[in-house]
Design a protein around this nucleic acid. Sequence first.
DNA 1: TAAGAGTGTTCTTTATATTGAACACATGAA
DNA 2: TTCATGTGTTCAATATAAAGAACACTCTTA
Lengths: 187, 187
Amino acid sequence: MNDAHFDIDVGARLRDLRLKQGLSQRALAKRAGVSNATVSMVEANRVSPSVSGLRQILAGIPISLGEFFAGPPGDREQVVFRADELKEIAGGPISFRQVGANLEGRALQMIHERYRPGAESGKAMLSHQGEEAGLVIRGRMLLEVAGIRHELGPGDAYFFDSRKPHAFRNIGEGELELVSACTPPSF
Amino acid sequence: MNDAHFDIDVGARLRDLRLKQGLSQRALAKRAGVSNATVSMVEANRVSPSVSGLRQILAGIPISLGEFFAGPPGDREQVVFRADELKEIAGGPISFRQVGANLEGRALQMIHERYRPGAESGKAMLSHQGEEAGLVIRGRMLLEVAGIRHELGPGDAYFFDSRKPHAFRNIGEGELELVSACTPPSF
DNA sequence: TAAGAGTGTTCTTTATATTGAACACATGAA
DNA sequence: TTCATGTGTTCAATATAAAGAACACTCTTA
């Protein structure tokens, strides 16, 4: 019934986080205001805690539900990606070169973007929620977010909620180069 | 006891997502394999669903728990940050200039980093989990992750799990310039 | 040994989430 | 109107999570 959506192991993850903080079940329980039995049960996956209960427990770490479920990407290995091995994920007048090949299960996506003069990348209203940011390295760019246009040059940056409709365009004479990041990965 | 950790409104968020998909409570319930009453209760915040129960419901959207809780950071406004208004968050031989001033409740952090020759930034084992990535713009950098050293030049990039111990150093003759991003924000 | 303090686990009761059916209210068709 | 089908909500029964106390175990210290 379920897709392969990383079935995060709540118990293991909680235990992992707790131990990283050097806390015993009782110590965490006390900080969080729950019983030690609850912590034990949850860690052993003998129960599936209520969201409010889990939030309560996580308050003792402390960590938010978002961070908790942002989850362990598993151990992916490659750390360094050479300039020529960034994965090209767009063609034509726009070059999107992604850091890392397979982002399945990851929380972050970074892209080295290049736009030929006049090139533009418009994304309509995106249902997927998240955040994105970028910093211009070279060239001039026109950024439109939620109907408002902004002109950015080298060193300028942006940060917005991905759900807002947005579009990018190179309005300079030369190439536009920028580094962007978004979470969660959008494609 | 709690920090201002955005107390996400589970009910409102679920309803919002469901409506965005154009589903009725019953339609979603059927796809998810739960009762319509459950959907109603959860949306009205009359109960705090179990994690397993919520996952079940979200499978009908479909969306993962991570995405669900990555959550709406509320409407923050400033979209564009000029080069000279990036917030300096480190001093001395290292310059960290952050995109956006207040990242409270946000999921993403982007930093424009500059290192003088020889400067280094070592972070020991970081308890906070997450991911980080970066791309070198100028100069040569030595990156050490989990005991392994890598040398990177312009255009090269990295991507790793923040929990692994890591350190950065400028090993070039000139300035090292890079753009990094991490999720969740680490400081 | 024994006693004490620490660990995580297991028990029984209590609180709460979830179900399936009934409910109340809309809209559109005969 | 009357019926049919849609919506979201509420109710009583059942399944499950949470609490508090007891348990079993490992240490350290006397």
